[in-house]
Nucleic acid binder design. Structure first.
Lengths: 236, 236
DNA sequence: CGGCTGATTGAATCGCCTCAAAGAGCGTGG
DNA sequence: CCACGCTCTTTGAGGCGATTCAATCAGCCG
């Protein structure tokens, strides 16, 4: 194995699907994969297009979105580093994938990737488990979208983002004030939660007024009272 | 192979996951599977419980539901004959599975079923594809839940049920009036669409008043103007 | 014939959306 | 360097759609 192998220096080597492969097995994938950087706002896959590629997300945040015939949009999932992108064995893409932040992908042509999958049962099994997890998450999101109030949605969303940011290590204190930057605009948060920009803004302002959070700068968020937020997110 | 083999007389033999197996391979599954009938209203799997079984649905309709801590419920999926039930490789169940009609299942203990899956790559691959389809459906449902009006939800729901009933062959005419029975109560429709009972009832009444549908009996529905319904479901 | 579950209908309320305008942050070019 | 324009955000006023609460009605079974 050469030092030029892209997998060797892969930041998500162990968390991604590839974690199921031995170094030897990686060689096949290695020759297949191609690093690709995408700028914030750029769309990687268009809904309805032919399904050409699969990928592992190395860095950044992507959104998965769907929209109605008359243009109403809904973000149906967010993808974080080490997440898998695309749908093997499908001829066309169902959803649009767009970069919310500058991002980096490890892209594979779909057909050859399917062959690798077929040759490596452990990897395919891992993909199955990931897909089940994604399904579970999607269904949980359905409950949230259909049954939670705007306040519950915002509180839950902030907690979710805080957990992610926390593990990414902005500040380690679990219960104390945690500050992080949202990778989404108000409009994108609205698209995730099934609300409007104005409602998102109003709810955030309300939580700030109540002292549960602070909003340093347009993108920053500080969790000041996690317990109270949790109570708003999940009323007994 | 003996005539007592349950797979031989299986109504969904070719449509289900098992369709990927040869008759010889079926023998292993055959000894594992157990027919189980469940009555309308009965719950097969409880959310949070240990994940003990997987199954193929042979007949009837099941609902997959989630609920908030304070009891608001959302149906996150419906299961029809030949659909797969459960989640292999997971230690606990995420959602509650309940029979909406009297139903019949072909149940497998999870652990042994996983072993069969591991031994039959084609079947596992088929499950992967099914799971991707379920994910796609769930995400489409998210768009519907978050962005469609009550009228759009009801119109779309009726069309979906009509398609199912149509293929099951109540009456073959594609564009003419099609009559079928809903397997769901108003309350359950409300849980599917993220509405309330009253809203469902009002929207149905409105569509009836507009002459797009008729409502013969509590459970019956007649599609009188499919094109108009389609227009309500999917405004350009 | 009650008693039950499910469906319908009405009235009033409220939460979120729509429309509208103003303010903040930020990069660009004069 | 600062004014300008852009995008994103905040805030307000008003309206509408769906919910909530409540009462009646229909079908079904014992």
């Amino acid at each position: 194995m050469f030092m030029t192998d892209i997998c060797v220096e892969c930041a998500v080597r162990d968390q991604s699907l590839c974690g199921s492969l031995t170094d030897a097995e990686l060689i096949a994938l290695n020759s297949l994969g191609r690093r690709q950087t995408v700028a914030r706002g750029e769309t990687v896959i268009w809904a309805g297009d032919e399904s050409i590629v699969c990928a592992n997300l190395l860095a950044g945040v992507l959104k998965l979105s769907a929209s109605t015939a008359d243009g109403r949009e809904q973000i149906v999932g967010l993808l974080y580093p080490a997440d898998f992108v695309g749908r093997p064995y499908a001829e066309k893409s169902d959803f649009t994938v767009t970069a919310l932040t500058d991002a980096e992908l490890c892209v594979f042509p779909r057909k050859p990737f399917e062959r690798v999958l077929e040759d490596h049962v452990r990897m395919e099994r891992m993909l199955l488990q990931r897909t089940f997890s994604a399904l579970e998450e999607a269904r949980g999101r359905m409950l949230m979208l259909a049954r939670n109030s705007a306040e519950e949605k915002i509180a839950g969303f902030l907690l979710g983002m805080a957990d992610r940011a926390g593990s990414a290590g902005c500040r380690a204190t679990a219960s104390g004030p945690l500050t992080f930057d949202l990778p989404l605009t108000r409009g994108q948060i609205a698209d995730v939660l099934g609300l409007t920009i104005e409602t998102v803004s109003r709810q955030l302002t309300k939580l700030k007024a109540a002292g549960l959070i602070a909003l340093p700068g347009a993108r920053g968020v500080t969790i000041r009272d996690r317990a109270a937020l949790q109570a708003k997110a999940e009323p007994a």
